[in-house]
Design a protein around this nucleic acid. Structure first.
Length: 270
DNA sequence: AACGAGACCTGGCAGC
DNA sequence: TGCTGCCAGGTCTCGT
């Protein structure tokens, strides 16, 4: 489900919880990608939520005792309930708050994660290896160009690697490459400095546009407030196999790259 | 070091 | 209706 815009939309939907105190932690099924630490039921009890931030596709919830990391994997979703409700089949984890609010994680495929990061979350093994945020100024064309010098993998695979830059998943990789006019199959080290600049610009623009639309709702994404996103209506290529290119009219092609579906226009992207 | 394939899971859908 | 196979928004781990 979630790429950067969906995770950020989720984080924003949780902001009403800031300052609220945890009254209870419920772990119904700890077996997500990694086991949910059992100690959370004690560690988080009576702790006020101090801050909600995001790093890549992780949501960071800071408490005095440390920071909780939430990752939605492929199918995860967090809803903010005004009061407790009977849990559904794949509702694996809850944070109950003193004012009655419930943060509930639902994740059918269980590729998501709930982890404890202690006092210095940036040092957590999963976070410290992450590349820059795509919307930061440190992510720019010349920097990307340098990073690609020794990479022969297809450019699409490379921009989806969170160790290089975070937040660009399968949808927004295809969309950004279309907007930049770059063929997703191009070997990364064959992308010129100028086109790296254009690509960075379009990654940023695509993510910002998606954020503005509240993310994309394909199957199961809804923000924490329960509202869907609308960005899928603006897709140029993703999921549009054989439909005509919105720019030149040629049928959109779909191929597999790195075991992922990839969509592009063979005239607009070279 | 970089790359590609496999792994982890469940649910939805198309096709027979 | 029921079965089978394929697909899905992520990303770590392993073998080459």
């Amino acid at each position: 489900m979630p790429e950067l815009p969906e995770v950020e939309t989720t984080r924003r939907g949780l902001l009403p919880l800031l300052g609220q105190t945890v009254s209870q932690v419920v772990i119904r099924n700890p077996s997500l990608r990694w086991p949910i630490p059992a100690h959370l039921t004690e560690t988080l009890k009576h702790q006020p939520l101090l801050e909600l931030s995001r790093r890549g596709k992780y949501i960071l919830a800071r408490f005095e005792s440390g920071t909780l990391l939430l990752h939605l994997g492929m199918s995860g979703r967090i809803c903010l309930l005004a009061k407790d409700e009977p849990p559904a089949k794949h509702d694996h984890f809850d944070l109950h708050f003193a004012d009655g609010h419930v943060l509930r994680l639902r994740d059918p495929r269980r590729f998501g994660a709930v982890l404890w990061a202690g006092q210095v979350p940036e040092e957590h093994v999963l976070l410290k290896v992450l590349g820059p945020e795509p919307l930061d100024e440190s992510f720019h064309g010349d920097w990307l160009y340098q990073q690609l010098r020794n990479k022969t993998a297809p450019i699409k695979n490379v921009i989806m690697d969170s160790h290089l830059v975070v937040g660009v998943g399968n949808i927004y990789a295809s969309e950004s490459l279309f907007r930049a006019g770059v063929d997703p199959r191009t070997a990364a080290n064959k992308v010129s400095r100028k086109r790296c600049g254009k690509l960075v610009e379009e990654i940023k623009a695509t993510l910002r546009d998606a954020l503005r639309a509240g993310g994309s709702s394909l199957r199961d994404f809804f923000g924490a407030d329960g509202n869907p996103g609308y960005f899928q209506q603006e897709y140029f290529v993703y999921g549009r196999t054989d439909a005509s290119c919105k720019v030149c009219g040629l049928p959109i092609q779909s191929i597999r790259l790195g075991q992922r579906s990839t969509f592009f226009c063979r005239r607009c992207q070279r």
